[in-house]
Structures are given as structure tokens and as C-alpha cells.
Design a protein around this nucleic acid. Structure first.
Length: 277
DNA sequence: CACGACTCCTGCTGGC
DNA sequence: TGCCAGCAGGAGTCGT
């Protein structure tokens, strides 16, 4: 579920509540997510003050410190994870796996499919980038580093179709299955076209198309289908009109042609044959 | 190195 | 109505 915009919206919702707060306790109910949640988090985090809430790729980084302890809590929501604040007396539900107990309320992580991650990287905030899961992550698409020059050279060796290439987080982070299809639709590029056979002129359209697709989604509060819940507990919804995603068989909003659904690298891709070449 | 298949897990939907 | 196959927003690992 959560792609970059959803994680960023989540971060923005969490930051004002978390920054400066003190963690009074930690509960781990299901230690086995994609990786085992470290048991020592209970001891480590208790009494910590939260310094900052950051995002790198689709990971949330919660910087914590107290006397003798400094490090970052690394959280990934996987396909079905969400974080929400609940009152202290709210009973946990089936898939509530992890929580931070604060003075005013509890931050609870639910993740039915358990593809999420809760890990710890010790050290100052800048050390979080050294964690093995983060060290191999690619460029942030909303940063100044994401340029036509960069993508054109980075992708020149990629012979595979552009859509799964855009989803390779070792190149560019944060573009998941929805926004890969949406960005290509916006740019008028076929998801089937080989990455290294797209002209520079077309990357000059694709780069801003990706930026705008992600920015618009963030501005709209993050789009989602069913699992995503804003950190304040409100249900997320598809506030941006999807151009192609999940619209198989429906008319293209631009040309009226029929939206097609295909499979690439095991994932559904949606595109308009009329608009995308 | 690049790429696709496979894998982890649960829940929902659609077809019979 | 009930059952079950297939599919779902991620991404690391492995084999080719």
C-alpha cells in the first residue's frame, strides 16, 4: 500500500505529535514481521525522547535519545501496514504488532500481511543511512539529485521495460506499483518500452511527471485503496483521480480509449494504448 | 551486472 | 450460500 506519498503523509502526521515526546514504554506482540522485531527495543527505547521523525525511501526513521542511548527506529509499512494514535485503554486488535506508549496516547503499528519492518540502528541520526536496508537505496525522486542527466545515465544500461525499472528502489526510491503506472500515463510513455530505448527528450517529460505525480498525491493526503490509515486515525482514500491504475476496461479520461491491464514482473500494470507509446 | 521468479503473510473478491 | 483460486500498494534473495 504505502508508496512514497503515503509514507510522507504519514511522517507529516506523526512528526508534530512525536517530536519532543518521551517514550514511556514499548510493546511487541508479534515479533515476526519481515524481520524479527528486536526484543531489546523494550529496554532500549523506554525513557527515550523522540528527536525527529524522518523519511528515507519508504522507511520512516524515528530518531531517539536518552542518557547512554542514541539511535533511530526504522519502520517500513510493507504492503498492508499502518500507524495510528489510539487511547491508552484501546484494546489491541488481531494484527496490532508493535506500539510506543507515550504520555498522551499510544502509537500502534498494525500490519495484517506482516511484510513490514521494525528495526533499530544505533548511533546519531546520520548513521541510519548506514543500515543495510537503507544503504542500498537509490535516489529520492523529490530531491534535487533526481535530474534528467542522472536518470538518463543511470538507466542507459537497463534493457528491461521502463515500468518495473522505475520500481527498482536501488535506482529511484518510493515509486511503487500505483505511481509507476500513473507517472508513465502522465508522461505518455508505454510501460512496455525498454528503458534504454527512451529518448532524452522523453525523460525530460518523465522526470517532472514523476515529481508531479508524487507531489500531487502528497498534497492530496496520500492516495490509497484500503489499508492505509492516516496517523491521526482517519481513513485514507483515493483523493486523486487515478488516470489508469485499477481502471482496466474503463475509458481513458484523456482519449476515451480503453485502459488495458497487463502483467509485468509479476505485478499489474495499467496503461492507455492510445496515449502511451 | 541485470533481470525475472520466488518468497514471506493474511484477507478480500470473483467465479463456479 | 459456500468454497477456493487468485490477487493485493513491497522488496530481499536466488538462479540464470
Amino acid at each position: 500500500m504505502p508508496e512514497l506519498p503515503e509514507v510522507e503523509v504519514c511522517r507529516r502526521g506523526l512528526a508534530p505529535e512525536l517530536e519532543g515526546a518521551v517514550i514511556e514504554g514499548v510493546k511487541i506482540r508479534a515479533p515476526k514481521l519481515r524481520h524479527e522485531i528486536p526484543r531489546e527495543l523494550v529496554e532500549l527505547l523506554s525513557g527515550c525522547r523522540i528527536v525527529a521523525v524522518r523519511r528515507r525511501a519508504k522507511y520512516l526513521l524515528i530518531d531517539c535519545e536518552r542518557a547512554g542511548v542514541q539511535g533511530s527506529l526504522i519502520i517500513h509499512l510493507g504492503m498492508s501496514g499502518n500507524l495510528r494514535f489510539v487511547p491508552h485503554d484501546k484494546l489491541p486488535e488481531k494484527h496490532d504488532h508493535f506500539e510506543l506508549v507515550l504520555a498522551d496516547h499510544v502509537l500502534r503499528l498494525a500490519d495484517p500481511r506482516r511484510f513490514g519492518v521494525v528495526l533499530w540502528q544505533p548511533g546519531p541520526p546520520e548513521a541510519a543511512a548506514l543500515h543495510p536496508l537503507l544503504a542500498t537505496q537509490g535516489i529520492e525522486p523529490l530531491s534535487a539529485d533526481f535530474t534528467v542527466d542522472w536518470i538518463f545515465s543511470a538507466i542507459s544500461k537497463r534493457a528491461g521495460p521502463i515500468k518495473p525499472t522505475l520500481m527498482d528502489s536501488h535506482l529511484v526510491v518510493g515509486i511503487g506499483n500505483i505511481y509507476a503506472s500513473e507517472s508513465l500515463f502522465r508522461a505518455g510513455i508505454s510501460p512496455l518500452r525498454a528503458a534504454n530505448r527512451i529518448s532524452r527528450a522523453r525523460y525530460e517529460i518523465l522526470v517532472p511527471a514523476i515529481r508531479e505525480t508524487l507531489s500531487d498525491a502528497i498534497a492530496a493526503g496520500g492516495s490509497s485503496i484500503r489499508d492505509y490509515v492516516h496517523s491521526d486515525g482517519g481513513a485514507g482514500c483515493f483523493q486523486i483521480q487515478a488516470g489508469v491504475y485499477d481502471r482496466a476496461g474503463l475509458p481513458c479520461l484523456r482519449c476515451g480509449g480503453v485502459i488495458r491491464q497487463i502483467r509485468q514482473a509479476g505485478r499489474s500494470t495499467y496503461y492507455c494504448v492510445g496515449c502511451q507509446h
